[in-house]
Write a protein that binds this DNA or RNA. Structure first.
Lengths: 209, 209
DNA sequence: AAATTACATGAAGGATCCCTCAGATTCTGG
DNA sequence: CCAGAATCTGAGGGATCCTTCATGTAATTT
């Protein structure tokens, strides 16, 4: 558990010319490609550079180390996800808790399903990285949005919104991930999704909201 | 035939003398310790051997490569987990689906919570390993037991037991994992667990079982 | 007690890979 | 067109680490 001295994970330098902007984008895309084809263990700096069509030195001008590549990828993905969740929460203000929960399922599910292989690769990459701080920040941000949404729901009466929020988000996020881990067909996926919604609905009704 | 993996993962040799049995046990325990203290990235063969108090060469007499160490650990853990789930399923035969589901929550939760750090380390280790086959085999084994349990429940009427099983197990396993991923306190954990049970119960009642 | 088998050792081969740096090339403002 | 800034190059230093094997010691069998 004694974590080593914090290695820099932030980009080293921001491109100013369009040439280097293209380069950085190519590096991002190459990182994804290598991650998908060779996995986290097969992700090497030379491999990424080669795939991106640049030299290793160029890569190291924008990323301080190998980790930062995957870190940046996760950051991008999580930020987009957070924005989408926040948008959904804003849109669902004033609706019932059940409707809000179902919308959350849809949004989260859609975001994860759009690029399934990338989602899976990132899920895995997180395990080998010092992304705890990043994940905590993301969780806090999203929790704030969803808690707020549940608080302002038309039928909200429970004294503790955080409790409802914790349960619903844990179940939803966990179920989505687990659904990914299994190799499932289309109709099974669809069944799971509607089943998950039904569970949320049934629970909320039973609880009296 | 089972497709031959690029790298062998099975133990190379089984101890016959008590001396070597002690050695192998020490290696297992050392692997756990190093995994907990240094993480997957810091797990080195020399590190494990040193911690176990044996030489690297000795280690390589029983394990063909580094991966096989963690693979064996996962295999052990999953086998134990499967046995416990099967025991619960056997015990819950003839009870209601809701009771069966709640018992499953308890069993799974308990198994994962007994050694939280190890559980977390293994969750992470899986990402860097070729454990897909192992996990699939485990999933199939456990699914068989739980599906059977639900089929023979006293109040089972639905035409498709597999569907109910898939939903319940996905939600339960996923939620447990997600609960682990967040850093939660005791009372939050307890709340989540009872909330998860309530959700299962509410869903089953709503569905009409 | 000799022979055979099981087990243990750890230095070193060999392979991989991260990251740097000195120097070349391209761009941009004046 | 030119000076300086931005960008790019890629061979190689340096470090890590997996794995083997020749050699030695203990246990078991004959």
């Amino acid at each position: 558990m004694p974590t080593q001295p914090l290695t820099a994970l932030k980009p080293r330098k921001t491109p100013s010319q369009s040439r280097s902007r293209v380069t950085v984008d190519a590096i991002y895309e190459a990182t994804i490609q290598v991650l998908l084809s060779r996995g986290m263990a097969g992700l090497t700096t030379t491999g990424v550079a080669e795939r991106a069509g640049v030299s290793v030195g160029t890569m190291y001008q924008y990323f301080p180390n190998k980790q930062s590549l995957v870190y940046a990828l996760n950051e991008r993905f999580l930020t987009t996800l957070a924005e989408r969740v926040e948008a959904t929460c804003a849109q669902m203000q004033g609706r019932s808790i059940a409707e809000a929960a179902e919308a959350l399922v849809d949004t989260y599910w859609a975001a994860k399903t759009e690029r399934p292989e990338l989602t899976r690769a990132l899920y895995r990459s997180v395990a080998e990285l010092e992304t705890d701080a990043l994940l905590r920040a993301f969780a806090a941000r999203v929790d704030k949005a969803t808690t707020d949404m549940f608080c302002r729901a038309s039928d909200f009466r429970s004294p503790d919104a955080g409790e409802v929020n914790l349960l619903l988000t844990t179940v939803i996020y966990g179920s989505v991930r687990n659904a990914f881990e299994r190799g499932l067909g289309q109709e099974e996926i669809a069944g799971l999704k509607s089943g998950l919604k039904a569970m949320c609905r049934a629970y909320l009704e039973a609880v009296g909201n």
